[in-house]
Design a binder for these strands. Structure first.
Lengths: 135, 135
DNA sequence: TGAGAAATGAGAATCTATTCTCATTCACGC
DNA sequence: GCGTGAATGAGAATAGATTCTCATTTCTCA
């Protein structure tokens, strides 16, 4: 497999694991925790350890493919980069995160002028569609 | 000390510790972590254990005097309730948090309509005044 | 095909925030 | 001054996310 060999120069991780993992992240409606990714990979009959999930994630974050976001509860979730500017919705029922495209004008202007604002994050809380139905 | 005795009916915590702690929180420009609070109390020559800081915080959160907020880095910071609707600025240099009054119109409207949004949080990142000068 | 290098899974180890334990101290009514 | 129960400080214990270790497997390339 020629493609494989070429790829390994970029990332030493086995491409099948790495590709599957990236696929999982890309298909998700929002960023996933390492444990969620691990879980999905195992369900998809992949034999992979949590340590490897972290190893791949670390490499991808370093290379800029994957973007970590900190969530309440003290864990990081990983989403693919290259999305437009976006924010997150966190379902308080199922604790899943969803990406939400778009933003609001003037959000950084709420800070007093003596702060030098370089970025912002918006987190919306509530119930996702599925959990509203289930309720 | 009459006031002390009366207070104890409300909260069993020793009022001096509890009052000092609340004072520290009230005077802070933003929410503080348990460790920060503990640190400040010790600097102010209080003899108090971290466990007691957590005990008092738990009681105050339960009674609604103090409000916990989760920050990146996996720790909770505690601020006094009763402030207007506000958000937070996190200095990336000194890792201190500051409260920022105000909000932005329509922030919850960025979520697709199939989400039931019940709340939101805005976090601004950047450098505080002090760290800009220090830089 | 075979040797060496790199990646892997599994579970142990670590790290950090928070909670628990318990011997001691303190406040209060007597 | 004294007994009792609650509160305390200190440090051990816990819990959860992440990282490390290492024996084993897989890959690369001659």
């Amino acid at each position: 497999m020629e493609g494989r060999r070429a790829l390994r120069k970029v990332s030493p991780m086995t491409s099948s694991n790495r590709e599957q993992l990236l696929e999982v992240i890309r298909k998700a409606p929002g960023p996933l925790s390492a444990a969620e990714i691990w879980d999905q990979l195992r369900r998809a009959r992949a034999r992979i350890g949590l340590a490897t999930v972290y190893r791949i994630l670390k490499a991808e974050v370093d290379s800029g493919t994957v973007e970590p976001t900190e969530f309440p509860g003290g864990h990081t979730r990983f989403g693919s980069t290259g999305q437009q500017h976006h924010h997150h919705f966190l379902c308080e029922a199922c604790d899943r995160a969803f990406s939400v495209a778009g933003c609001v004008e003037g959000i950084e202007d709420i800070a007093p002028s003596h702060f030098a604002v370089s970025g912002h994050a918006i987190m919306l809380f509530g119930q996702c569609e599925e959990c509203q139905e289930t309720q």
